[in-house]
Amino acid sequence: MAPHTEQLTRPAVRLRGLTRSFDGRTVLDGVDLDIPAGQFVALLGHSGSGKSTLLRAVAGLDHEVAGSGELTAPERVSVVFQDSRLLPWRRVLDNVLLGLDGKQAERQGREALAEVGLAGRERAWPNELSGGEAQRAALARSLVREPELLLADEPFGALDALTRIRMHTLLRELWERHRPSVLLVTHDVDEAIVLADRVLVLDHGRIGLDLTIDRPHPRSYRDPRLGEYRERLLAALGVTEDHQ
């Protein structure tokens, strides 16, 4: 794939020869990757292909993991995990404000909650929220810091199908408003195609396929033109259509 040479600013994320291994087993084997500022990237791969390892490396969460390589990431990075990871002893707004303080932050926290459709739930306890609401709150928590890079590790994996579709729309809207670079790790090919402008497939510790998806948003799962992308991605993942 051709690199995004039209981008004038330096990339938000730059990986050169990123290698990570656990107990001698190489999980990332010299990954080279540039993510331009403001790009929405999805990272696909089998379970165990190292996609979470890559995300955790970019997030700086892989202390005590053996590895080498060059890694540049922006100052303000937010992470959304698969579980909402709300602290059960803090009310929703206080969870959103975790690590921030001041009146200004509180106002931004309320705005972020309103943006994800949780206005009025500021004083709720996390265990009073549904799974989808909790994940919205987690999105608000990541947004309130105005991240330059949003890392999402299968953020909708634990949600039911209907909630997931609604969350896709929400995430795309939020991205359009705030324009952070996004690295979305997922195992769901359709989710990647509907949301991202560029889809990477991680295979044996390297980027096996780098595909730019050049279709207007909002995209529908039923768009036949997306079928072609799906086929290429599934082939890169080693799945043939008739298995579907």
Binding site: R85, L98, G99
Partner: peptide, 11 residues
């Protein structure tokens, strides 16, 4: 998981 969250949030 909460330790990780604290690291991500820069506590």
């Amino acid at each position: 998981r909460f330790v990780e969250l604290a690291e991500v949030q820069g506590l």
